[in-house]
Write a protein that binds this DNA or RNA. Sequence first.
RNA 1: CGGGACGUAGCUCAGCUUGGUAGAGCGCUUGGUUUGGGACCAAGAAGUCGCAUGUUCAAAUCGUGUCGUCCCGACCA
Length: 482
Amino acid sequence: MAQEKTVSKEITPQSEDFSRWYLDVIKKADLMDYAPVRGCIVFKPDGYALWEGIQQELDRRFKETGHRNAYFPLFIPESFFQKEKEHVEGFNPELPFVTEAGGEQLEEKLAIRPTSETMFGHMYAKWIQSYRDLPMLINQWANVVRWEKRTLPFLRTSEFLWQEGHTAHEDEVDARKETMQMLEIYREFSENVLAIPVITGQKTPSEKFAGAVDTFSIEAMMQDGRAVQAGTSHYLGTNFAKAFEIQFTDRENQLQFCHTTSWGVSTRLIGALIMVHGDDRGLVLPPKLAPTQAVIIPIGPAKLRETVNAKAEELYNELRKAGVRVKLDDREGITPGWKFNEYEMRGVPVRIEIGPRDIENGQAIVVSRITGAKVSVPLDDFVDQVQSMIANVHTEMFNKALAFQQEQTYDVDSLDQMKSLFEQKRGFVYAGWCGSADCEKQVKEETGATSRNIPFEPKVKKNKCLVCGEHGEQTVVFARAY
RNA sequence: CGGGACGUAGCUCAGCUUGGUAGAGCGCUUGGUUUGGGACCAAGAAGUCGCAUGUUCAAAUCGUGUCGUCCCGACCA
């Protein structure tokens, strides 16, 4: 058997064309299909299962921190968007409207929600009277629509699925605490479930959410060195409270405006997952999210099939009982080699091979999707060892992604230095920044990179602005972004 | 939304220049032989050539429009 990896004939190598690779993988792994409307995709069962996994994990964390789910309407009166000045400017260009229904023009156009701050604001104003009603902690799982100019499956689609949390608080301290708590949940989830290392920090004013006082984000690095904003959490101050008159009577019988927050992650996480972990053989799924964590493939000639299948089924039942999401593929007429490639393409973290030789030796072969390492596992310690291999896959995925992120992270002192760096490489660039929007804009114009965020814990500290050379108050991470 | 490329069977594509019977490989179905890294033989099914419209005796092929996809730019989760 040849030692070198056999690579799928149907997937363009990453090194050849990263975006082709990405599209090949999602197509071959059967995650989605294009819908007949521009920028819209069908989340096929294998793709949707990833979203269900994300939902399950996050929903548990939201509930543990006191949030409840609700559902708000898809249609939002146009006038709602006029109430907050920055918000309307930020979202108007990408708003779709319903203007006609039942063959008649509507009195007021209805926006198809791009985000629900306005609708939550309107309802919260009705629901909140007293400090006793606070904090109001509601999340919704929903679809939203943004008419983007350029679309890409999962990462940027016209309609996408997300969750949006909207909370109202008595004061700034409490609201800011909520903002940071949710950001931390996103970070923890991203690293511990998705195995994606992220940079947490604050958005610069020009990159913050339209209508927010402060926006915070987690930023992940794809394998082409570009960044994806994997989650955001906003402190909205009293901006929306004033626009929608969300007021309450405080403990001193004074009328006050609420301080509100919002936070969200979307199905773009699926895209990030693929771009962070995938390889030339296809998808690589983190075990905690993988719908199938291990697949058992029985091998052997027809005359021994019954014996092998019986053993395979025994192992299958043992793993299932132990809580492993395991699948037994005993289909006949399909060669083992074909199945190996198939499950690698679909990203199943661990493969188990069992054949006559193994049964004779009282063992099974267990193969890690990420390292490709084949291990003989004795059957008398089978479940424990498989479980620990599954756990190892997560650690190896995270470490590999972290190592990559660190290798592709640079720091520069000047714009010229950054320009020449970007002629050769892609990645995260730490640089000092004076805080001026003009300097930030110049970086974007000359390098194509935007400020991702101002990290809470920068790898290096810079004290001079890379553009103007003035005192740099902030150390900013720049990158080209999706 | 600007610049470029593309749209023919489930998938990848040929055919278009020079208009005249709809093609290949893979996949799929059936039967048989196979099974430790994408097996083999045989038979078979499958496409209003993205959609609309114009030119023509005749359009996958030429023109126009439109929708969608990809790549490059400006806008974004």
